[in-house]
Design a protein around this nucleic acid. Structure first.
Lengths: 176, 176
DNA sequence: GCCTATCTATATTGGACCGATATAGATCGA
DNA sequence: TCGATCTATATCGGTCCAATATAGATAGGC
């Protein structure tokens, strides 16, 4: 999903700055399915403004730099819905950890165990972060995607804990 | 994980052409954690050759275009292992479908159901593809990552089948 | 008082990546 | 004969992002 569509979607839920959009990705429990960097968010917001899909107003702040608050326009809202009604791009999953496990036999066993421990820790942290969000104020869609994320993280943890021995106790540099 | 590292890894398992590396991603059951396009594979192989991490030989074929076969060098193999021993980049997951489900309330219910059906079909296809790979000739690492993929796909399917009603029967354009 | 770490806030850049395209060689079914 | 599809290499323009830049803070340690 391109970053302009992502920003439009976020803005259907309420006005936001570029910085707030980024924070939503980092802290909002969305990291299992969406992310964007400042390097793409600010240019995307600029283009959306140029295209008339969003409008922008500056707000001065005391003791803080000014902030630019973006609002979706009616045209932008229609464009967003139209995009969702088209066939969606494929999911993309990239896991350096899983890729590295393909080659566990090339690594010292102690290091493989440490990598598995570290990855389990990362997933536990993400799950805890998801669980820290109360469901009280969530829409059905938000609850659905949070529960989906929990399901995948829990399945991942169960799998790693159950199956880690299968790649940890391999002879180093097995003949291949 | 950058594409050069990915190509190096594949080549530790045996010589391959750029085209074969791409086919491995598409058909090898790796799509839940790694992928690269021709647009990045060929330049990566060129750079690896320039850097001395791989060597290349051309093979003429009857009735087919010539093919370039790449082999990892001892220096390349060491570099690959050294890369795996460093801290790995974070996983990245991008799911336009899950992102769209955040906004299910903006869409006609029939369309939401169709999107869920289509996504379930895609995941079922990926799972069937994974299951089509016999475990007989797999290394422990390969078995591990295939089993991991199955676990995640199965958890996904179970979740979608169980919870789809939570976003399908919403009033259209709920007040927000 | 200074320095480092961290937060808030916007913006840009160079390099990596990729979908599309190009070129060139086939087979197969209608 | 033609269109679809496969094999095979390669490039390009657009998108994305980590890093960097600039500018405004607070807080804690020395």
């Amino acid at each position: 999903m391109d970053v302009r569509t992502i920003c439009l979607g976020i803005l259907t839920r309420g006005d936001a700055t570029g910085y707030e959009i980024k924070k939503l990705f980092e802290e909002g429990g969305y990291e299992h399915f969406v992310e964007a960097s400042f390097g793409s968010i600010y240019p995307a917001l600029s283009r959306l403004t140029d295209e008339g899909f969003v409008s922008v107003r500056s707000e001065a702040q005391e003791k803080r730099p000014d902030r630019k608050v973006y609002s979706i326009t009616p045209v932008g809202r229609s464009a967003f819905v139209a995009t969702l009604l088209k066939p969606l791009p494929e999911d993309r999953h990239r896991s350096p950890f899983v890729f590295a496990m393909l080659f566990a036999d090339l690594l010292p066993q102690a290091h493989v165990s440490a990598m598995v421990d570290h990855y389990i820790g990362q997933v536990e942290e993400k799950l805890a972060h998801l669980n820290s969000h109360s469901d009280a104020s969530k829409s059905d869609g938000e609850r659905f995607v949070m529960d989906y994320g929990r399901t995948v993280y829990e399945a991942t943890l169960n799998f790693l804990r159950t199956h880690r021995a299968e790649i940890e106790n391999q002879p180093a540099q097995a003949a291949e």
